[in-house]
């Protein structure tokens, strides 16, 4: 457990990560055993293994950590969380690092720069309609972020349309105003905290 005394001995960046993670991720308990890096399906594509990243967080290496592509290659499969001998909430930490990287403006410069764009496009749709809208997501994301790759996904998009697996227009929820009010209030609370 990260007590206040424990935290007072950690790097400022370590504290920043803990503060932005919803429940205590037990990060200070890391043994550097590498079970996470060994279990990760996209481990070979990451510029640092999760384990290395945790050592870097402990060392206060804020910028290199937030510039790393590692969090963006996390597929949220929870294999590392399941196997971690110290019960570290690794996936949650990866989400925290993504948020911090976006806030710090490093996200768009990482070697996995497409990921934040994809996430943002997805969120825009959900905020506007209440549900995801896949056709809109794919077209907007590719046209805005990866125009040259659009052709590569076109056959799959066409295949989905042909099999009636894509909606041509979004299906907004009924009480969209209610959802928007909730999300707006959440944004205000968040802003008040980070201010």
């Amino acid at each position: 457990m990260a007590t206040s005394a424990t935290l007072s001995r950690t790097s400022a960046f370590f504290r920043e990560v803990i503060a932005d993670t919803p429940t205590d991720p037990h990060l200070e308990a890391c043994l550097q055993c590498g079970t996470c890096g060994g279990s990760c399906p996209s481990g070979p594509d990451m510029d640092h293994t999760p384990r290395t990243l945790f050592a870097m967080i402990a060392a206060g290496m804020r910028e290199p950590v937030l510039r790393s592509n590692t969090p963006w290659y996390c597929v949220s499969c929870y294999a590392c969380v399941e196997r971690c001998p110290q019960d570290i909430h690794i996936t949650d930490v990866m989400y925290t690092l993504k948020r911090l990287a976006i806030k710090a403006g490093y996200a768009s410069q990482s070697s996995a720069a497409r990921a934040p764009g994809f996430s943002q496009t997805f969120i825009d749709h959900v905020e506007n309609y209440g549900r995801s809208f896949e056709l809109g997501l794919i077209t907007r994301y590719y046209l805005r972020h990866r125009p040259l790759d659009a052709l590569k996904v076109a056959p799959i998009g066409m295949g989905l349309l042909k099999r009636r697996r894509l909606d041509l227009s979004p299906r907004p929820i009924r009480q969209l105003d209610q959802l928007k009010a909730i999300l707006e209030r959440a944004r205000e609370i968040d802003n008040a905290k980070s201010a």
Binding site: D20, P22, V75, S76, Y95, T96, K98, R99, I102, A115, P116, F118, S119, Q120, F122, I123, V126, G130, R131, S132, I173, R174, Q175, Q178, L179, I182, L183, R185, A186, R187, I189, D190
Partner: peptide, 25 residues
Amino acid sequence: DDWNCCGATEFIAVNRLRAYALASR
């Protein structure tokens, strides 16, 4: 009735509280 998206793996990557509020609705 009138459920919304759970946030998938994307929402939480950008905003913490909004992601939790979205699923909690």
